[in-house]
Simulated scan of single mutants.
Amino acid sequence: MATMNVSLPDGLKEFVETQVGERGYGTSSEFVRDLIRREQARTQLRALLVEGMGSGPGSEMDEAYFQRMRERIRLSGAA
């Protein structure tokens, strides 16, 4: 695993330390890694949304649409 040193103003350092204690992280590194993973996921989701928006018109989300979704879920055994 690579090491990276980050300088923080006192206020941010105190915030990180508080979050570590309140959220059950073992170290500040665990907290920062979690923040980075969440940002990666958010960035990936945004890219997928932009790709979907550019893929053309979607389905009309009327009562029939939701009924088809319910039926697909029921048939899959997930319900």
Rank of each mutant, 00 (worst) to 15 (best):
M1D: 07
M1L: 11
M1A: 12
M1G: 14
A2Y: 09
A2R: 13
T3D: 10
T3I: 10
M4W: 11
N5Q: 14
V6D: 09
V6N: 07
P9A: 12
D10G: 09
D10A: 14
D10V: 13
G11D: 14
G11A: 15
G11P: 09
L12I: 12
L12C: 08
K13M: 12
K13H: 08
E14W: 10
E14T: 09
F15S: 11
F15C: 08
F15Y: 15
V16E: 05
E17M: 13
T18Y: 15
Q19N: 08
Q19P: 04
V20F: 02
V20S: 01
G21C: 07
G21R: 11
G21W: 05
E22R: 15
E22K: 15
E22S: 13
R23H: 09
R23K: 15
G24Q: 08
G24W: 08
Y25N: 01
Y25T: 01
Y25V: 01
Y25E: 00
Y25Q: 00
Y25S: 01
G26W: 08
S28Y: 06
S28G: 12
S29E: 09
E30N: 12
F31E: 03
F31S: 01
V32D: 01
V32Q: 04
V32W: 02
R33C: 10
R33Q: 12
R33N: 12
D34I: 02
D34W: 02
L35Y: 08
L35C: 14
L35D: 02
I36R: 05
I36N: 00
I36V: 15
I36M: 06
R37Y: 03
R37S: 05
R37P: 00
R37K: 05
R38I: 08
R38P: 05
E39P: 04
E39D: 15
Q40P: 01
Q40T: 11
A41C: 04
A41K: 09
A41R: 10
R42K: 07
R42I: 02
R42G: 02
T43W: 03
Q44I: 06
Q44K: 10
Q44D: 13
L45S: 10
L45R: 13
L45A: 14
R46H: 10
R46K: 11
R46L: 10
A47L: 03
L48V: 05
L49P: 03
V50L: 11
V50M: 08
E51V: 01
G52P: 00
M53L: 14
M53S: 12
M53P: 00
M53I: 14
G54D: 05
G54S: 07
G54C: 03
G54V: 03
S55G: 04
S55F: 00
G56M: 04
G56Q: 04
P57V: 11
P57A: 12
P57L: 14
G58A: 05
G58Y: 01
G58Q: 03
E60G: 01
E60A: 04
M61W: 03
M61F: 03
M61I: 09
E63A: 15
E63Q: 06
A64I: 08
F66A: 03
Q67K: 12
Q67R: 15
Q67H: 10
Q67C: 08
Q67T: 14
R68I: 00
R68K: 09
R68Y: 00
M69W: 15
R70K: 12
E71Y: 04
R72L: 11
I73Q: 05
R74W: 09
R74Q: 12
R74F: 07
R74A: 15
L75K: 15
S76V: 06
S76W: 04
S76T: 08
S76C: 04
S76Y: 06
G77A: 02
G77D: 01
A79I: 10
A79D: 14
